[in-house]
């Protein structure tokens, strides 16, 4: 592992790409179900919220899909904000867009995995939207340029998003090899996948670094102070 890390780490350090580092090396327990506890920090050592960690099974035998049921997800709108800001879902998940505000919203996305449009509505729209293709779906509101949300569609049951402390947990991982991918809306470049092993026993602790850029330019930021 260490060698792998080193192999990975060197070019990443050189290329200023994702720098993955094992901060604490616990014993890789061969357990029935493994667990990963991951902490993400940026280049300034600040904890990073809204980072989505995705693990893709790399084992020889496929994992039975029925092992995971897919509950519907919600992308709420509160105080003219998408809540949560980043919503990772597995492909095929139906996402509802309830409106908790007392103003209407016009939620749309022009992202390739799922362009859609929910014209001005309030409350909970009739139908949920199924996100059937993996990828990044940027959400906006046509009448509130400052609203920005992300639905990150992954084709794996193993994913988690970091909380405000920059921590995320992925449990019930079948033992075996995984490919770890890290995504953040403000990441500067797509991260290099990381290969990890999941084993039962003590949870694996993983600390990941990510290079973030500033907040993305939004339309309202560009609004000039009109002279008229």
């Amino acid at each position: 592992m260490g060698r792998t890390y080193r192999q990975l780490a060197r070019p990443s350090m050189l290329c200023s790409t994702l720098l993955g580092m094992v901060l604490s090396l616990g014993l890789l327990q061969m357990a029935h179900a493994g667990e990963y506890r991951i902490e993400v920090r940026d280049q300034d050592r600040n904890v990073v919220q809204h980072a989505v960690i995705t693990l893709y099974w790399e084992g020889k035998a496929p994992i039975s899909p029925e092992k995971r049921e897919m509950p519907a997800a919600e992308m709420d709108q509160r105080n003219e904000q998408f809540v949560p800001h980043v919503l990772p879902v597995r492909t095929g998940t139906l996402v509802r867009f309830p409106n908790s505000d007392n103003v209407r919203h016009h939620v749309y996305s022009f992202s390739r995995p799922k362009p859609f449009e929910l014209k001005l509505y309030s409350g909970v729209p009739q139908s949920a939207i199924e996100f059937d293709k993996p990828g990044e779906v940027v959400l906006g509101c046509n009448i509130h340029d400052h609203m920005l949300g992300y639905i990150y569609v992954v084709d794996t049951p193993f994913f988690a998003v970091t909380d405000s402390l920059g921590k995320a947990e992925i449990r019930e991982l079948p033992e075996g090899p995984y490919r770890l991918e890290l995504w953040h809306p403000r990441q500067r470049d797509a991260s290099e996948p990381l290969r990890i092993e999941a084993s039962a026993g003590e949870p694996h602790r993983l600390s990941l670094d990510i290079h973030l850029t500033g907040p993305p330019p939004l339309a309202e930021l560009a609004t000039p102070a009109s002279k008229d």
């Binding site: 022009f110 940027v138 509101c141 340029d145 993305p216 560009a222």
Partner: peptide
């Protein structure tokens, strides 16, 4: 020259 957002810069 003006950027086009949707909602990110397109």
């Amino acid at each position: 020259v003006m950027p086009v957002y949707g909602p990110l810069h397109l």
